[in-house]
Amino acid sequence: MADHITLRMKVNGEDRSVEVHPFARLLDVLREDLRLTGTKEGCGEGECGACTVLVDGRVVNSCLVPAAQVQGSEIVTVEGLAKGDELSPLQAAFVAHNGAQCGFCTPGMLVAATDLLNRCPNPTEDAVREGLAGNLCRCTGYSKILDAVHTAASGGEGK
């Protein structure tokens, strides 16, 4: 019924333009139209956080965002966290601490943790727990994720 729109976004620093239904989910635009499959669908109801991306510097559940609402926005996905081959400190800490097990929550978790450290460079344990509470993990019990975030926050040190 609706005409497709030309959706223009800056995705991971690159200008992208794609013809999509205005009510398409941002998640599907990223995964299917742009083939940025790092962003995952875990529930489709904004509960698990596997689809977390940054829109204009704020974390969102991309499964709950209609395409037309991100017209002209800046999007950062997990694919945008590393600088070339160099992992971000958080990514490196997730590898070092076994913060990723099955890896399916990891992209969303990393985006949420990146946002958390941007806003609060030295978070307390409770702040990390609250900051990541929208990202469910079924593998780790969260301890190794907390270790990784604290390590990245302290510039690679920590436990």
Partner: peptide
């Protein structure tokens, strides 16, 4: 405590799951 073999692919979003 060796690092996970597929850890890098998992933190960069490069790991390919079935729906990918």
């Amino acid at each position: 405590s060796s690092h996970r073999k597929e850890g890098r692919a998992k933190v960069t979003g490069a790991a390919l799951y079935t729906d990918d």
